[in-house]
Amino acid sequence: MQDFHAHSNYSDGGFLEGMARSAESAGLEGIGFTDHCNVSPRERLETVRSVYGFNLDITYERRRRAIERLREETSLAIYDAVEMDYDPRDEPEIRAFLEEAAFDYALGSVHEIRGMNVQVASNFVELADDELDAIVEDYVETLVSLIESELFDVAAHVDLIARTSPLRGRATDDHYRRIASAFASSRTVPEINAGRALTDEEIVHPSERFLEVLREFDVPVTVGTDSHRPAEVGDRADFLREFVAEYGVDPVAPPGLERPKE
């Protein structure tokens, strides 16, 4: 069992060493640090980066040296990876950065639609039903674009809109099939994400129905706890162990780990 989606203090997570030690204590064989990164040249997102300090494009070499030191101190496999914000307008900048940085693998995420974070319910509570449906349609189109771009090894939390009450339940089987069809034709794979599985809402990405559609299309999946604190790693890893056993899923490694480095 390995965790291919975790965060450290190089974005919005706990200290790198503490996260690694927690993965080791949880009996994991490996952990991938996929700190947030946005390389959009657009002014608003540059401001957001400054405010939140998501500057892995500046600090990845320092984090890489820290990871190399941790590797010398443990038998745990530690992967040097990234979670990139995706917008189709930013593909040239994303591609250039990923080629330069040469991470072990890369996750891509759709966090924003029309300049609004899809995890923030207050962005959508005043919208009419047709407007909410349009947001969901835009989310699906952007996710399909992410998959088809093949910039990433993994598409993270592929139904992120399910976290947000005004958007939850608006995705249809047709949406799921469009996404699954894109995955079936791409090297990019989705993940089973446990980031909200142990909350009161018990949200697993993808949802049970979405996972069944992915299986209909014979789409492989990887796994990630999406942990941001050391205390989260063990419980979420245990959840994923039970989840994949219950659903008969045999997770794969991110495709980037299967390709030899050039």
Results as ranks from 00 to 15, higher is better:
E126K: 10
E262Y: 03
F33Y: 07
D173A: 12
R187N: 09
A128F: 14
I78Q: 07
R170M: 03
E202Y: 13
L257Q: 00
V48S: 01
G30A: 10
V252H: 09
D138M: 15
R64W: 05
N9S: 15
S40T: 05
Y60F: 07
S227A: 13
R241Y: 05
D35M: 04
V48G: 00
V154P: 12
Q2C: 02
F152W: 08
D85N: 08
E201C: 01
D87A: 00
A81P: 00
Q2F: 03
F183M: 02
N55E: 15
A184Y: 01
D35N: 04
P41K: 04
T34M: 01
H7N: 04
S207L: 02
L160K: 07
R168D: 13
V219L: 01
A23I: 07
E93V: 07
A20N: 06
L70D: 03
D129F: 08
N9C: 14
S165W: 05
A237M: 08
I203H: 02
T74L: 12
H157Y: 09
R42F: 08
L132Y: 10
A128Y: 14
A128L: 13
E262C: 10
V125L: 14
Y52M: 05
A66L: 11
Y79M: 05
L151V: 03
V252S: 00
R178N: 10
I113G: 03
G18Q: 15
P92S: 05
C37E: 02
R89E: 13
F124N: 12
S11N: 05
E43W: 11
V252Y: 14
E93P: 09
N9P: 10
E100S: 13
A77W: 08
M116N: 10
M19Y: 10
S165E: 11
D153L: 07
D173K: 14
A171S: 14
E29C: 06
V233P: 06
V136L: 15
N123D: 11
D3T: 01
V82H: 00
T225S: 09
R62T: 12
L45Y: 09
V189E: 02
A6Y: 04
A245Y: 12
F97S: 02
M19K: 11
A121F: 13
P41F: 07
F54T: 04
E131A: 13
P254I: 02
L16F: 09
L132E: 04
D87P: 02
I203D: 01
S227C: 11
I135L: 13
L167S: 08
E258T: 07
L127Q: 12
G195Y: 05
A197S: 15
H157E: 10
S50G: 11
M84C: 00
V244W: 01
D200K: 15
L257H: 00
R69T: 10
D235C: 08
